[in-house]
Structure formats: structure tokens, C-alpha cells
């Protein structure tokens, strides 16, 4: 199979600078079970550049959330980081102790957790929750300055100032989600990790939250990792996409090339399975991850579901290689000799 890479990437938006803010190298996170380790993240390598949004996509259980948790060193037992380096400003997060970690969390990397809107404290006013996050890291602040800072954060995420005094139950899901975004950017981090920030919201609210994220990125120049499985949303929001399957990164490309010409058979399947509102077509059926994650098959991780599988795929692991500018794929179909 040959692929034509001739087209130029013309419509690329200014997707950040070349400055790397996060470098993940050979990350392995395993979960211990009585019958062996589950390889949730297996040898994942990627970089995040300043001011870009990278989408991390894949089905449940593919390791996208675990990857994010590992970057923040929040992997819970029985999970553990087995190997790899997580570099932020040349500091390896994987090697830091708890005290050093605290200085990096939230000030360098912050998180909008999955179901973030349910993570707000129901008995605290919004101002106190955001204020808490600030004072925990920066010590006590003058009252007036803190108030102004919180109000400016709220306006950054497009919330009216009266939210300042409100309780979480007085807000809608989309507003709560935006409060969580405000908290995540409160300390000017260089990287925000958003884990399915719009799942469970309906489309209009999802769009408002998505636009808020874009707005925040453009205004503050912060980098983001956006985790999700909605390819439509990814096409709207991100600059580059990293596709994960069963703990492996199988494709990494800029969003335009990836949607125009997905290379990895799994990426093709993901894009094919997006329901369209333009035409009715027969549904494309697929199974989930089919192998036992404790005992992955030798060779390519996707071989059991791949329509193009060859003998080589059953024995040799395809490495993630750059096959064209800004396009990396882990598939034997695209390597030349």
C-alpha cells in the first residue's frame, strides 16, 4: 500500500511555537493484578509544544487517562510507572519526591479531571474554591487583589461576575465545567490536561465549553492535552492528534492530515465510525479491544482487528516512525525497507 504525501499542509493554523513544554519518553504504566500486569500504557513517546492543543484519543481502556495521570504522577496503586521519563523544563517528573511534585502540580501542569463538574465542593462558594487553589500554592493573598484575580479568571472563561458568590448547585453543567477551567488556569500553568471536558454535556453547551477552551488557549498561550473519544470535537478543537490503542501510541499527526488521510488502520476505523448528519449509511460495526491486556500478542498490538494484517505484523512490533513531515505512525504498511 502506498500513500501519496504530495499535498502541502496549507491550512494549518498557527499551532504554537517550537518550544517543547512537555516531553514524554518511553512511558510505561502497569497495573498489578493477581494474574499479571496489565500494560495500560506501554512505551509511549510524544512531545507537547508551547501553545498547542493535542488531542489524545482512543476507546475506553486504551490508556489515555492513565497517560495523563502519569504525567501528573497521580497513578494510583495498584498502578505504577514502570519506566520512562516525563520532562518538564528539563526536570523529570517521574523522579521527583512529593514535595517537589507539589511545586509543579497546578503551577506548571494542571488538570481538569473527568466529570470535573462533580468535583466541585458542594458546600463552598465558587470564590472560596478558586481562592483555595491560589492560596494553597501562593500563600495568603490580600483580599482585594484575590477577589480581582478570581473575577478576572471568571471573565476569562466567559462567566458573569455573580458566579463569584454562588454555590455549585446554582450553576448548570456547562457553567460548572467552566469554573473548573478557571481553576485549572488560576496559577498560569504551561500545560493544562483536560480529561473528557465535555462528555455528559449536550451539544450546544459542549460547543460553548469547547470555544472557552480555545479562547483560553489563544489568550494565555497555554498548551493543552485534550483527552476524549469524540472525533468530531477533536476536529473542531485540536492542532495535533495522538491516537492510542491498547496502551500504544499508534499514530500522531496534525489534525488536518489525520482527518484527510488517516494512516493507521485503527485511525481509519475511528474516523469511519463517526456517525454523520450529512448522509445515512449502513453502520460500521467493530468490536472493542479484543486481546487480553495482561498478555498482548507478539508483534503489532492491533493485529487481531486489523484488516491488512500480514505475517510480519504477528511477529515484529511496528515502531512509531515519522513517515512524512509531522506524521508518525506505527504500522508496517508505511515503512519503506
Amino acid at each position: 500500500m502506498s500513500v501519496n504525501f504530495a499535498h502541502e499542509i496549507d491550512e494549518r493554523r498557527p499551532a504554537g511555537t517550537d518550544q517543547v513544554v512537555l516531553q514524554v519518553e518511553g512511558l510505561k504504566v502497569y497495573y498489578a493484578t493477581p494474574t499479571g500486569d496489565v500494560r495500560a500504557v506501554d512505551d509511549v513517546t510524544f512531545q507537547i509544544r508551547e501553545g498547542e492543543i493535542v488531542g489524545l484519543v482512543g476507546e475506553s481502556g486504551c490508556g489515555k487517562t492513565t497517560t495523563a495521570m502519569a504525567i501528573l504522577r497521580l497513578v494510583q496503586s495498584p498502578g505504577r510507572i514502570v519506566d520512562g521519563r516525563i520532562l518538564v523544563d528539563d526536570v523529570d517528573i517521574a523522579r521527583l519526591n512529593e514535595r517537589e511534585l507539589r511545586q509543579i502540580r497546578w503551577t506548571k501542569i494542571s488538570l481538569i479531571p473527568q466529570g470535573a463538574m462533580n468535583s466541585l465542593n458542594p458546600v463552598m462558594r465558587i470564590k472560596d474554591q478558586i481562592g483555595d487553589a491560589i492560596e494553597t500554592h501562593e500563600g495568603r493573598q490580600p483580599r482585594q487583589a484575590l477577589k480581582e484575580r478570581i473575577l478576572s479568571l471568571l471573565s476569562t472563561v466567559g462567566l458573569p461576575s455573580r458566579v463569584y458568590k454562588m454555590y455549585p448547585h446554582e450553576l448548570s453543567g456547562g457553567m460548572k465545567q467552566r469554573v473548573c477551567i478557571a481553576m485549572a488556569i488560576a496559577l498560569n500553568p504551561t500545560l493544562v490536561i483536560a480529561d473528557e471536558p465535555t462528555s455528559a454535556l449536550d451539544v450546544v453547551v459542549q460547543r460553548v465549553v469547547g470555544e472557552t477552551l480555545l479562547d483560553v488557549k489563544n489568550r494565555l498561550g497555554v498548551s493543552m492535552i485534550l483527552i476524549g473519544h469524540d472525533m468530531g470535537l477533536m476536529a473542531q478543537l485540536v492542532d495535533r492528534i495522538a491516537v492510542m490503542y491498547a496502551g500504544h501510541l499508534v499514530e500522531l499527526a496534525d489534525v488536518y492530515s489525520l482527518f484527510r488521510e488517516p494512516l493507521h488502520p485503527y485511525t481509519q476505523l475511528l474516523i469511519d465510525s463517526i456517525p454523520s448528519i450529512k448522509e445515512r449509511k449502513p453502520l460500521k460495526l467493530t468490536e472493542g479491544i479484543t486481546h487480553d491486556l495482561r498478555n498482548p500478542p507478539p508483534g503489532c498490538i492491533f493485529q487481531l482487528r486489523c484488516p491488512h494484517v500480514t505475517d510480519k505484523c504477528r511477529t515484529v512490533v511496528p515502531p512509531l516512525l515519522e513517515v512524512a513531515p509531522s506524521r508518525e505512525v506505527a504500522c508496517h504498511l508505511y515503512y519503506d525497507a
Binding site: E11, S172, G174, V203, V204, V205, Q206, R207, V208, G210, E211, D230, M231, G232, L233, M234, A235, Q236, V255, Y256, F259, I271, I274, I277
Partner: peptide
């Protein structure tokens, strides 16, 4: 209009309100 189109060349139009 708010359904995200899986095509990065077609982005959301004017801003939505809730």
C-alpha cells in the same frame, strides 16, 4: 449547527449562547 463536524476545515461558525 453545534454538532462538531469531523472535519477540521469546517469549524464552528458564530458563537453559541446558553
Amino acid at each position: 449547527d453545534s454538532i462538531p463536524v469531523p472535519d477540521p476545515t469546517i469549524r464552528w461558525g458564530s458563537r453559541a449562547t446558553t
